[in-house]
Design a protein around this nucleic acid. Structure first.
Lengths: 126, 126
DNA sequence: TAAACATATGAACATTTATTCATATGAAAG
DNA sequence: CTTTCATATGAATAAATGTTCATATGTTTA
C-alpha cells in the first residue's frame, strides 16, 4: 500500500450509517473536545474521591483542620492507612498540611474540593 | 482477660494527647458523620468519574445524546471497551439509554452529573 | 431466512490500588 | 541522649479494575 493510499484512508470518513443525523454534531463536538491531558487530570481528580477512606478523610477535614490521630480516631482506619491516603491526597493537592510540634495538621486545600464533595452528596440523596 | 476488663477497654477514651483542643470538635463531628453506606455510595459515584474513558464518554454525552458508534468514533476507544463502560455508567445511573432501530442511544441521566463534571473541569484549570 | 450491521457480554490477562505489617523518621520531654 | 509519642514509608499481598479477543444477541434489509 502506497503512502498516498494510507493518507486517503486517514481522510475518509468511516462513520457507520447509523449516525446519519448526528454526523454534523459529532464534528462540532470533536473540534471542541478537551485534550487527552485534560481528561486525564479530570479523571485523576475524581479517582482521588473514588475511595471510601479518602472520601471520609476529606469529609472530616471539610469540618475543619485536624491532625492525623484525630482522623484515625474519627474514622475506623489504621494510622498507616490514613497516612498513606493522606500522602495521595497531598500529592493531588486536595489537602495541605503544616507541622505543629509532634503533630501534622491537615486541611482541605481549596474550596473547589468542598463544592465537589457537596455536589456528590447532593446527587446520591435522591 | 475477663469480659469485664474487655468492656472497660471498649469504654475508655483512647484519644492521643496531641488532640487536646480538638477533642470537643471531634465529638461533634463524630455525631453528625454520614453513615458508612453514604460514604460508600459517594465514593462509588466518584469512582465512576475516575476513569479516563468513562469521563470522556460522559463529556461527549454532555453535549447531547448519541449512539455507541458515535462515541466510538469521537473517542479513540474500542467498541467493546465503550460498551463495557457504558454498562457500568448505566448501572450507576449516570446515563440512560433507549433503542432506536439497530442503534442504542445514550444520554446523561440527570443534571447533577453535568454539574459535577463542570465543577471538576473548573477545578483542574487553576 | 440469510446476510449485514450495531451493540453486548464472558473470559482471560495485565495493571492498578488499598491495606497490613514492620520499621524508619522526626519532634518533644524527661 | 534516651525514651516516648506522632507520623511516614517500603515491601508484600490480596482484591479490584480496564482492556482485548472472540463471540453472542438483537435488529434491519435483501
Amino acid at each position: 500500500m502506497s503512502e498516498k493510499e494510507v493518507e486517503q484512508e486517514e481522510v475518509k470518513t468511516e462513520h457507520s450509517e447509523c449516525g446519519g443525523k448526528y454526523v454534523e454534531m459529532i464534528k462540532k463536538i470533536d473540534n471542541n473536545m478537551p485534550c487527552e491531558e485534560e481528561f486525564y487530570d479530570l479523571s485523576e481528580l475524581f479517582k482521588m474521591l473514588g475511595d471510601s477512606t479518602r472520601v471520609k478523610i476529606l469529609y472530616a477535614l471539610s469540618q475543619g483542620e485536624m491532625c492525623v490521630c484525630d482522623i484515625v480516631e474519627l474514622l475506623d482506619v489504621t494510622q498507616s492507612a490514613v497516612s498513606h491516603q493522606l500522602r495521595l491526597l497531598k500529592q493531588a493537592r486536595l489537602v495541605k498540611y503544616r507541622r505543629s510540634g509532634k503533630s501534622a495538621i491537615y486541611s482541605i486545600s481549596d474550596d473547589h474540593v468542598y463544592t465537589i464533595l457537596s455536589m456528590g452528596m447532593e446527587h446520591i440523596s435522591e
